[in-house]
Design a protein around this nucleic acid. Structure first.
Lengths: 330, 330
DNA sequence: CTGTTAGCGCGTTCAG
DNA sequence: CTGAACGCGCTAACAG
């Protein structure tokens, strides 16, 4: 069980001062080629690797990007993390992931942990319970740049990357109405979260604009699961006035809705049109009856990452850019 | 833009030596209650947070666990990462994720990076191209414990967590045969990867044992995608002798197979039984015609994590435990 | 109970 | 071209 080899070890063996070794290993021009070769050769042979922790302590380098999401295990977020990880890697950063499990308590602890670890920057999407923002604002005190994406907090002054939820939902409502659907339900999440609020507002706006009397915004704040989707479908079709179109905010819930309708012998899309947010190619392959609203995941991830890098390089510019992507119907 | 507050800052302001401050902050019994209170109060007020990098450099603490997977954006792996992240967090570790994109070149670089960052330990599943193990063996030189899961390398002497792929595939073949299926195809990955080799062997074993003349092991080594699944289905049904059962190793490919069969008006499960590996609840909800082989993801993640912690605490015990979980049919 | 000193691994002065 | 000395933030060992 050998110990990790350090610059000092090399310097001792080669009887060269450790500062020279350091220079040689960074290929400094101010070291004689010959000694440089000797040092590099020895280092390579014995598997010398810089200890990033030392660099981080000195403050010259920070190479960790923290990504905070409600659930890693969720198509959208897994995609985001995947893209960010690749990009980060190509720029010599590594990615640490944090999961809040939709709990604000955990989220607060996570932010503490992020600060402890003195990361280079943070890319975050908030939990379903997050209505206050102090724990995020806290990052500023420690000079840790923050970018928010998708589920953002409006009241916080940082760059944000979002999808135009308002627009797309409004558009969907309009499309449905033009196809003759006049009882359109919107299944959404808590209106305390910006994403869902925007979708709800988009829905309400268009419903009113078109003068549709039926207005039904179903809030599922018990979490987005297949079971909750089934439950929602049951409830919605218990009423006398039954919907003929459903806009669903969750790719998981919509599966529940879909199977429940099948069970109840309600035909999709003949009796009921279904439109759902979702980015999973398997699901869209399997349920062509459902139209999916696809968010540009890759673009969102890239934009978030780029913004963060910018912030890391130029921390002082209080840029509160807001990048808004269009969603698409597939 | 204030700088991060350190122990020394506190010690200066309070005119107490920084070592005393350090002790107070760690609630050492050898500091007078009064001074302790003063210090803690001041620290709290000014948002003091230990700098983990300093601790890491000293070597007293290592709090980063690296998880290396082929794709973060893959049900199985996203699940694993999710569970590990939660467990890690509860034990004061944070998780850095690394993605090899199925490339051994990238994998080698990733391992370098892991060593650079001097992590506490590594939990890994290898890429599809990984046939050599030197880069993993390298970790040992730097005293970084390694646990492998699912896609493991047999020739490397570390604890491993696997699913009994051989058994489950053999069992599936037997079941199918008992139900009258005598032309069973197995769609698998490269036999250079232990997981797939085991599945292939399980298949071959049972085919031979039962004396089934039809023996068709389809290797999809272009990656597991929906498209590849379609392609596979096309090819398989071009032949004169057509399969009446398909065992598929990939939840993504099977979607392709499934839609292709639909297109070709081949009925599932009447004409062809389909059994596939896969852990996605949405998919199984949508395709009840397909029987899924479910791996105990949570258990695998927990076992891997526990083994790693054990290794971290007791690095010297050269335990090469092998934990093998049973897969289940749903 | 508190202060002093030293060192984790490294890079960057500043001298020579 | 190379060596000596210092400090990043923190803790442990030693001294008082």
């Amino acid at each position: 069980m050998t110990e990790r080899i350090t610059i000092k070890d090399i310097s001792k063996k080669l009887k060269i001062h450790h500062s020279t070794v350091s220079r040689a290993l960074r290929n400094s021009p101010q070291v004689k080629e010959e000694t440089k070769k000797r040092i590099v050769k020895y280092a390579k042979k014995h598997g010398y690797k810089v200890n990033m922790n030392a660099l981080k302590l000195r403050g010259t380098v920070k190479n960790v990007i923290a990504v905070i999401v409600p659930n890693i295990n969720h198509d959208f977020f897994a995609n985001i993390i995947s893209v960010i990880t690749d990009m980060a890697y190509s720029k010599d950063y590594i990615v640490s992931v944090f999961q809040t499990n939709e709990s604000i308590e955990l989220e607060k602890k996570v932010l503490d942990s992020v600060i402890h670890n003195n990361v280079a920057g943070v890319i975050a999407s908030v939990s379903m319970q997050t209505t206050t923002s102090d724990h995020y604002k806290n990052l500023k005190k420690y000079n840790i740049p923050l970018i928010m994406f998708d589920r953002v907090i409006d009241s916080i002054d940082v760059p944000k990357v979002e999808t135009d939820n308002y627009d797309i939902v409004a558009k969907v409502v309009k499309d449905l109405f033009q196809k003759g659907r006049d009882r359109i339900v919107h299944i959404s999440g808590s209106d305390k979260i910006s994403v869902f609020r925007n979708r709800i507002n988009g829905y309400q706006y268009m419903i009113k604009k078109l003068g549709i009397p039926y207005n039904n915004n179903y809030i599922a704040d018990n979490g987005f699961t297949i079971e909750e989707g089934k439950l929602a479908a049951k409830r919605l079709f218990e009423n006398k006035i039954q919907p003929n179109a459903i806009i669903c905010d969750s790719h998981l819930m919509v599966i529940g809705v879909f199977s429940q309708l099948k069970e109840m012998k309600i035909s999709v899309p003949d009796d009921v049109s279904i439109i759902s947010f979702g980015n999973n190619p398997s699901l869209s392959a399997l349920t062509p009856e459902i139209t999916y609203i696809v968010q540009p995941v890759t673009e969102i991830a890239i934009a978030s990452f780029d913004l963060l890098i910018e912030k890391i390089k130029q921390p002082d510019q209080s840029s509160n850019d807001k990048i808004i992507f269009k969603a698409m119907l597939n």
